[in-house]
Amino acid sequence: MLITELKSKEEILSLAGEKAFIINCLGCKEIYFPEKEAKELQKELSDAGRVTGILTTDYICNPDNMKLRLQAYLEQIEEADTVLVFSCGVGVQTVADFLEDKKVCAACDTIRLPGFQGVTPTEVDCGQCGECYLNLTGGICPITACSKSLVNGPCGGTKDGKCEVDPSMECGWERIYRRLEKLGRLDVLRFPTQMHDFSTDEVTKECKES
């Protein structure tokens, strides 16, 4: 169970590219999810002819479930240059893992709600960091896939593609690099220096009470 917040409208509109396929996940995050704003935004994109299809579903964090749901939409996904996912970080990553050759973007930031955890046990993890980096990292979470949660690229500890901390674990940044290379999108890594804002990783009191 998570709280997600929409990224800024400008950011989402620019992420959508020319043609986007939109996935809404209403699995567990309908609580607090700004559904109205999301719908308005999607309508705006749709009216501008920038949407090839919209799938509103649940539990895309479950890979089997997600694949099943996506089956009927593969053509529309093919047509799109971007798949824009309105879900928590786990959902976005699960979709990005499956649609390896597609640009998959996160439209939300995932925030920590104390006392709640996601429901589907999976290898994909979201640290609920409050400012989702997936759009800079090819849909692989640097917070959970890198042992040091680095947000500006790999440390010098990568050896044979493995992490210095645990040689049985693939280096998260090596995975990010290879994913973006495969997508022909290495230029994404030229993002400006990131500094993680630790003041946003927990939901504010006002938000909880609203």
């Binding site: 500006n152 690229g153 790999p154 010098g156 090596e174 690099y177 290379e181 290495l186 030229r190 220096t193």
Partner: peptide, 14 residues
């Protein structure tokens, strides 16, 4: 001499 020189160069640029 890292086995991922390409990634090293990206990081160097950053």
């Amino acid at each position: 001499c890292s086995d991922s020189v390409d990634a090293q160069l990206v990081k160097m640029e950053k």
